[in-house]
Design a binder for these strands. Sequence first.
RNA 1: GCCGCCUUAGCUCAGUGGUAGAGCAGGGCACUUGUAAUGCUCAGGUCCGCGGUUCAAAUCCGCGAGGCGGCUCCA
Length: 581
Amino acid sequence: MDKNSDEYLEALRHTASHILAQAVKRLYPETKLCIGPAIEDGFYYDFFRQEPFSPQDIENITFEMEKIVRDNLTVERIDCDRKKAAELLKDEPFKMELLNEIKGEKISFYRQGEFIDMCAGPHASSTGEVKYFKLLNVSAAYWRGDEKRESLQRIYGVCFPEKEQLDLYLKNLEEAKKRDHRILGQALGLFSLQPDFGPGLVYWHPNGATIRKVIEDFWRDAHFERGYHLLYTPHIASISLWEKSGHLSFYRENMFPSMNFEQGFPYQLKPMNCPFHILIYQSTLHSYKEFPIRWAELGTVYRYEKDGVLHGVLRVRGFTQDDAHIFCRPDQIENEVTELLDFVMYFLSSFGFSEYEIYLSTRPDRFVGTVENWEKATKALENALIKKSLSYQIDPGEGVFYGPKIDIKIKDCLKRTWQCSTIQVDFNIPERFGLKYVNQENQFERPIMIHRAIMGSLERFFGILIEHYSGNFPVWLAPVQVKILTVADRFIPYAEKVLGFCRKNKIRADLDGSSESLGKKIRTAENEKIPILAVIGEKEQLTETLAVRLHKKGMKGAVSVGDFVRKIKEIEETKSIEIDF
RNA sequence: GCCGCCUUAGCUCAGUGGUAGAGCAGGGCACUUGUAAUGCUCAGGUCCGCGGUUCAAAUCCGCGAGGCGGCUCCA
């Protein structure tokens, strides 16, 4: 059997989970078994046990698992009837619950040594095949994912057929840790969170704020080019707006509590921008001739997230959406979405993301609007995808209740996927607010509204960028593009001249004029991941040049100041990632 | 929110009942340096908070806050 086929890997990992369960049962016999499937790269097993598993326990379990692997126990399938199955599971209440839900009379079990578990299989033929595994972590999980049910302990592990694959996996894990945006964010002066004064709220430090400014400028320019207009709207509004939009009923648990004043309506911090854009739409009468209307806003929203889910800048309680709303006629959806797909690809690829996973989500069980409109809109979205020859998967029934949507996930350099862009048709809000426009026959009609975001959240996108580039931002994004280093103090006046010239040409340049050794200044600048260093000493001052050194690439030789600036502007313009001098 | 682990200087961490430590970063002085750490020196602390045990708590116990790994959820 092919050792890398999905079937084999699944069987192997599934057997690994049984070995884990077997080891746990040997060491802690009072533990009750729940479920233990194979997952991507590995496996887990859920256990019910009062005592938590300590790191020492995990070590002991690993040791026991290794013994089971060495003993190379044969894995055999045993089919039995319901009665016999119930007999075998009499001490396993969770398994019993599963048994009671299985239809049919033939129940399969798998046995290795003294351990037997009800399981559909398939499995590896013996425990000796599971050589390369590692237990990674323990977490809590609810029985059947239901928070009202028992809290279980889940032990995760990874498992591969070859040692090299396990080593590579563990190495990638290390690599991902080194790229962690929370660590780089602090080390590079990009951002901070101030947990003592409100968890999940992002402070953009000078270097991070510079990157954000570059992103925002690029974003605005790209929108103007595509016929968008920009909006700014308030951060709070009377709660009545949220009643009208319906958020109070379907989004309440994600909203911060309202602010009560002595008189009048309480105010509410906004979790979304759309109602504000709607109000602007409603402030005048609209004709079909204006369509499509494309309005965009970098709108900061606040959502109450449960404390356990916050994660760096990737999951926060206050974030800025690159939000836009398009108002159009139903027959314009397809064209708008086609253009949007173009826009999204252009935008994301500018940041170095060129691999995508695209999902089309269709009508869920609970929905608003008519089936006919849903079908038309879904078809329009699908046609747009087909027109752009993009491959996509359909997520049946995964649409939001108010309309079908396209989600685009990007892949970073570690092949991890991140959901950023989303294009959603909304049948709900135009209805609730009674939106209208005047058609060709001078009749009022309801416009279609499309919500869309490209980055999703600036904070989140920023975090993804940090990890994607591991803090080594391309020149166009780098907060400091050039750092000038002097060999000795007496070259500072010339260095300042060069600095001034760079800045005049809108190059983000700094000068390290400290009395440290050149070696120390280089070390510092390299650690700051500054893409281009310019060293200035005797030779350079005499010839009006500077010695270029590129991050991680080392010395490149002398260039005239004019050429230096021209070259950087060119690199910036083309958004090049790999650069050379 | 749930389970486990964690919280000591700006950062990374040592100290596990008996006077609070190191490296880096920061300040000062000297050096004036040619491609990844020059030397000397100084300063820096509510040991997360509150309560308890004890002659004595950074250290043990309880509660709370926050962080981390997951679960559930999600931009």
